[in-house]
Design a protein around this nucleic acid. Structure first.
Lengths: 247, 247
DNA sequence: AAGTGGTCTAGACCACAAT
DNA sequence: TTGTGGTCTAGACCACTTT
């Protein structure tokens, strides 16, 4: 690699100009032919520079339309401990709806529910591979924009014939129903990772660049695993917050 | 975009072949000229396909050498609660060294220490912007390979004249020293995010692709913030684990 | 010196969205 | 229809690593 590859140089110039407000959020950058003239570079090089900006999350490229300045990282900070508290549930608020309300956007979520053999999750739940799970596949949206994918799995042994198998789990959400069924929720575990989204996630989350944060939450009732929830959210717009007392 | 862009098609074929073991971990893929012949595509297209594999974390491209199959995601699962426990410290183990030992790799870490005005951290610490911070900039390595960057900041009011301003903080690490100084550590807060690495992080972590996980840990002693530690690690090789009891 | 990947050019055609 | 970005070609030269 050169000390300063031309495309990186161009990317850097554009980055500085964006940062200094030469184009505002949502503005269209000059089209490629203009950039080619301005920087006296080939289209390939210009596009390589734009790809850098895209990968850095600074711009969004829309086929047939143009390249647009992305909004600055607006972070939703999720506090897992607080958001799963019983107090919340007793106010009849599911975690997502409550947060949405607090942050002043209109939350919607679509849910699909189905049943399938435990397979890869059998060991985790300590059940047979052929035992059925209730799968709740949700897309959370804020003001119509998708902000999180969540796939929740519970042993059907627990959910059979309950509201947990309905699209609408009712006031307080799924956790409230679990407690009504006698499953006192005693502990949570969250496993956090980061990776690039796959094609489906890109489409569902309307992502054009950048990584996703993944969280697998495991919820236990007196030592028994009752729910595994796999969540995927855009890395650019989420921070996760965890707090604990020192022992 | 075509239903199947040629470069994606090629990337997919290679991906399947890698997955099925056509080349083992660490093996060199055929050089670009060979791939050009095999797929009857231009070099640009081949390289676009290889870039896809690189971005997916499947291969690593080494300038002047070749393209190599990356090891499968080997995840270090960090449990923040456990790793910061007092029990650990009383065994004279800093968090990183202890983990390294447990996982059977040779840990090394280089440290630079300096002092600077609090500036952006003033509000967080509740001190003057001109008040000095002790900054400990560390690179953690496992078997010589960098695995984490960590920049720790403490008010110099606390660290002045102590081992915390030395390169080697001694047995049990910085937290042990803080407690000896009378700062009983009472709570921790970690804020987790994901983003693409900047140029410096890419170089320091020897990253060729993929996102980084960022963690800002804030450590409190009876309500007083005593340390802010900004950590950056490759997303592909880390998972963070948090557990807590339901309230 | 030979072989590898890194960057760049000039040009072409295609797919998408707005007019 | 026009202008946009998406993909692709054929070739060139450069930089890095190994022989």
């Amino acid at each position: 690699m050169n000390a300063t590859a031309r495309y990186k140089e161009i990317a850097n110039i554009l980055q500085v100009e964006i940062a200094s407000g030469a184009w505002g959020v949502g503005d269209k950058l000059p089209a490629e032919p203009e950039l080619i003239k301005r920087f006296e570079a080939s289209r390939t090089t210009i596009r390589q520079a734009l790809a850098e900006l895209r990968d850095a999350g600074l711009v969004q490229m829309k086929h047939g339309v143009g390249v647009f300045v992305s909004p600055p990282r607006v972070v939703k900070r999720l506090d897992s401990r607080e958001r799963l508290s019983r107090a919340r549930r007793e106010r009849n608020e599911g975690a997502f709806l409550a947060e949405a309300k607090a942050q002043g956007f209109a939350p919607t979520s679509s849910v699909r529910v189905w049943f399938e053999p435990a397979q890869d999750f059998a060991e985790l739940f300590g059940i047979e591979e052929t035992a059925e799970l209730c799968v709740r596949d949700r897309v959370m949206r804020a003001d119509g924009k998708p902000v999180m994918l969540a796939v929740s799995r519970l042993p059907r042994e627990i959910t059979r014939g309950t509201a947990l198998e309905e699209v609408d789990t009712g006031p307080g959400g799924a956790f409230a129903r679990l407690e009504e069924l006698g499953f006192e929720l005693t502990s949570h575990e969250e496993i956090v990772g980061a990776r690039m989204p796959d094609a489906n996630e890109k489409q569902m989350l309307e992502l054009t660049s950048g990584p996703v944060l993944t969280v697998q939450r495991r919820t236990y009732s007196n030592g028994r695993l009752v729910e595994v929830n796999d969540m995927v959210m855009p890395g650019a717009s989420y921070e996760l917050r965890y707090t604990w007392d020192a022992d």
